[in-house]
Design a protein around this nucleic acid. Sequence first.
DNA 1: CGTCTCCAGGTTTTT
DNA 2: CCTGGAGACG
Length: 676
Amino acid sequence: MSLEETLKDELNPEQYRAVTTTDGAILIIAGAGSGKTRVITYRIANMLEKGIPQSQILALTFTNKAAKEMSDRIRKLTARKLQNLTISTFHAFGVRILRQDIDKLGWRTNFSIYDETDRNALIKESARELDFTEDALDLYKIGGLFSDIKTGRKDWQSANDGYRELYEAYQEGLKLYNAVDFDDLIVLPIQLFRESPETLQRYRDRYRYIMVDEFQDTSHQQYEMMRLLADKNVAVVGDDDQSIYSWRGADYQNIINFEKDFPAVQEIRLEQNYRSTGTILAAANGVIKHNTNRKDKELWSGNGDGQPIELFMPENEAAEADFIAESILSISVEEKRTYDDFGVLMRANTQSRPIEEAFLENNIPYVMSGGTSFFERKEIKDIISYLRVIANHDDDINLLRILNTPRRGLGRATVEKLNVVADRMGYSLWEAAKAVLEAPEKESKLTEAVRVNLESFISLIEAGKNMLSGKGLSKKVKAMVDEINYYDYLISDNPKSEKAARFKYMNIESLIKSMELWENNPEHEDTSLYAYLNRITLLSRDDLDDGEEDKGKVNLMTVHASKGLEFPVVFIAGAEEGIMPHARAVEEGGDTAVEEERRLFYVAVTRARDRLLISSCRNRRRQTGTAECEPSRFLDEIPQQLVKYHEPSKELGPQDAHEMLQNMLKNLSRPRVPKL
DNA sequence: CGTCTCCAGGTTTTT
DNA sequence: CCTGGAGACG
């Protein structure tokens, strides 16, 4: 069947129009489950089929996961190699631009990208230099303020002016260390485009067709970046009801801006839901209509009613976790489902622990996506820091991190000495270290031991230049990890538990493993250290390329991470006041925040295809002990006839439940994990 | 001068 | 639980 026939066959009239309208500006309002991903992928496949070169197409997404999913699907659909097609997150696209052209803004192209941890370290460092009083330092708040300032969400006002000097020091630090932060990945390309029209024109000439997914989640800055790039063929896809990133600057008013900036825009609305049962959809509609500030629309479904939504009220989070594990085991048998048919959604990463424990106990394979990123782990950050410093010697923040990790006798006093030189000369620490070592003995004032240690550190980093080009990055990294005796360091650093040390070492091994997979993937042409680092900073753990390993496992994730995904069976864990809506959001943001929390709940509900199970604990452990919980207000907004309540099964303690499960397991013939 | 040990405090969501 | 900081110790 030709693609044309496939399109006619598989798409409804609106979808068909969205797919085949390739020229001009298009706004696609796509409700949950309305086949949005399908429309986007078919649209791109169709463009390729029509002979538009891959290189002219740019698709911008919000998460790496979405980008990956999109290119996987297009690859399947077209059976082509997609070497020149650009499907990327806004941030990754920003990196790409900066890697090419950041020299025009005064950085060097081997710049480092600072994540939250690095940024905090830099703020702390800057504060120290300015003699900021320690108690005035709430890094969380200051980081947020700096981000708001940088992206133009806030101006300096009397209330904030106290931090102005610190902000300027922070900015100077970034430049001195040849580093940029996450906001810069969007802000600097815009600045570049403004200051260098030729550069902008180059990109405009190249990307003739632009598409933006999850448009409701774009920030003003991201919108601006898109607007500058877009010539006339630009399609944006979004759903105001699924806008859940306003805390990060997302503003679905961009939809209105879009209509203003591209007056000839055609609007296409996709309101038929293909995903969920009528019951689930009715619940979702019932909830979302409590929001006042939205485009009025109602999704409809041709699917049957399906089963009622099931609501459980477990005693506490451990019982909740047991309930989820138990249900997965029984449903997978009764309905012959594989583990990857299940999605377990939660509001916050903190909820994952008991659930993971229950999965482990019951031998349920699972993947946890998002969450404390793999790359935030100390041991991983340490190794990556080495790589960053090898790529960019002037990266003080990462240099400070590894200078004495593992211990090599270069402590506070040495750093202080180097800092003095660095400050006086306007050097980075690396330059300062080199200068101090080259200076005559008297000048340097370093003890002989320190001198030797510093020299060997420097030659270690310089030896790393063999990673900059050529092949076998993973091998070289492994050799370096051995060379610095990182495993011994882990053991001495975790004296209580050799197990912990080994676990951390295994994390490093899986990092190296993923590196190996990455460099052996024929689609990745550039496998230099730079290319690797570019990619890594913007990734979270679930983006790690571990091949097919994640297939056939239960999906555990935050609601935020679940956007754009669907599962035949969905659990929503922790549907309690204080969690959903989150107490913090209610405190800080009032009604608007509750509306966003409601959209979040709406997103969670609409992930489900066939079955939706919601649990609301009656008690939950807090830092300070156990607190009683009330069911989430959103539960009351689900029409009651759709819900089947389950009384808490008090008599069945964890012990009994465990026994019951063991019995069940014995009776099962093994292969529940699907063959790949 | 560097390292070790103990203690407090912390997490909403992500690039 | 895990990280980071302060202060004691070698």
